[in-house]
Design a protein around this nucleic acid. Sequence first.
DNA 1: ACCTGAACACCGTTCAAGT
DNA 2: ACCTGAACACCGTTCAAGT
Lengths: 220, 220
Amino acid sequence: MTTDARIPLSRERVLRAAVQLADEHGLRALTMRRLAEELGAEAMSLYYHVAKKEDVLDGIVDVVAEEINDAVARVEPSPDWKRTVRERILTARQVFLRHRWAPALFETRSSASIAVLRYYDALVGLMRDGGFSYDLVHHALHALGSRALGFSQELFDPGASASAEVPAELAWQLPNLVGMLSEIAHEDPDSTLGFCDDQTEFEFGLDVILDGLDRLRERA
Amino acid sequence: MTTDARIPLSRERVLRAAVQLADEHGLRALTMRRLAEELGAEAMSLYYHVAKKEDVLDGIVDVVAEEINDAVARVEPSPDWKRTVRERILTARQVFLRHRWAPALFETRSSASIAVLRYYDALVGLMRDGGFSYDLVHHALHALGSRALGFSQELFDPGASASAEVPAELAWQLPNLVGMLSEIAHEDPDSTLGFCDDQTEFEFGLDVILDGLDRLRERA
DNA sequence: ACCTGAACACCGTTCAAGT
DNA sequence: ACCTGAACACCGTTCAAGT
């Protein structure tokens, strides 16, 4: 989907096109040459608007982070810190569902973008107002990890390794896993997303942590 | 550090060299050409022992996973499930500290290696014996995420963005973050690893989750 | 059976040159 | 000021050829 070549390039146009390219064809398709093609320009033209590819990657992280900030800004605060924080995080998660490549990329960035810092700043403020000490907020951010931003990279999807996919010769080595999977498959035979409902699992993990943090806050 | 060229290549030698190369120079240095050079061979020779680069990456994930399995096998079980699981996870973490590139790579693998599955199988068994239903174990694995395997990718290290590094013009946009960081820096002026002690934070987050899971187990 | 040289299709990036 | 062509140093990988 090559766009009109008459519109002049700009950093913003480049970044928008990069996000769209990643949305449609994944991060691997995001090469400088392909990106330029998408914009109806030559690869070398991009370098007038961005320093290098890393700059593009930093840029699209920022674009997504701004999208998150816009989304969570519409969440109306509640007197209950946990309710507000929970809703903000689930709202942020919706943005990541629109940009499936983003979690992996966010984790490769070493220095946080300004937009990400603003996101965290608001979170810190909400928890502080909810009765947390700065010290506990700090621990809380580490405990939440990427969940605070709205995603949780699944290392191993128990559902993806459903019993059917495990070769019989392997099964005997994994009695507990096989047992667990067969029971789950039995109990929830028609889950839409395979055996594990990502949304349910994300909320489960999030609530375990938020509840735990709330208990620590009360005790302190 | 080129090794003796007279020793014939083998899949195992290739993978060992790949791990060592990543340990010493990072994942980015792990190219087929460089790897071959390290082994005193030509890049094309590698393809007789591995299918493609992805195969090498799958392979070194497996090597690390086996290293983890060896390490946790030496953890002696306790009647308290939480104690045992906690110690196993912290033991696994030690392995990741020796292979800093591994967390990022583990997260890019879509299908889990057999060794990783064995690790999870043992974990499932321990929790099941500790009184968990299969269903709760399943939720627990999702809640722990990569922490179950012994690492937690930090998206944004609050310590890395210490107040000193935040430009003054940005600080006013981040009042809560700046407040939090200045207090933490003040309270813990001489932490070795910067402002955040990774080990402490990892254990904090792990304990929040394990305690939460234990409470859910009791209630069920 | 195991290893290699030459070659291909791709990268990101520089630099001098065009308008 | 903005864009481009040619070129460079790298990738992973194929394939026919060597021993």
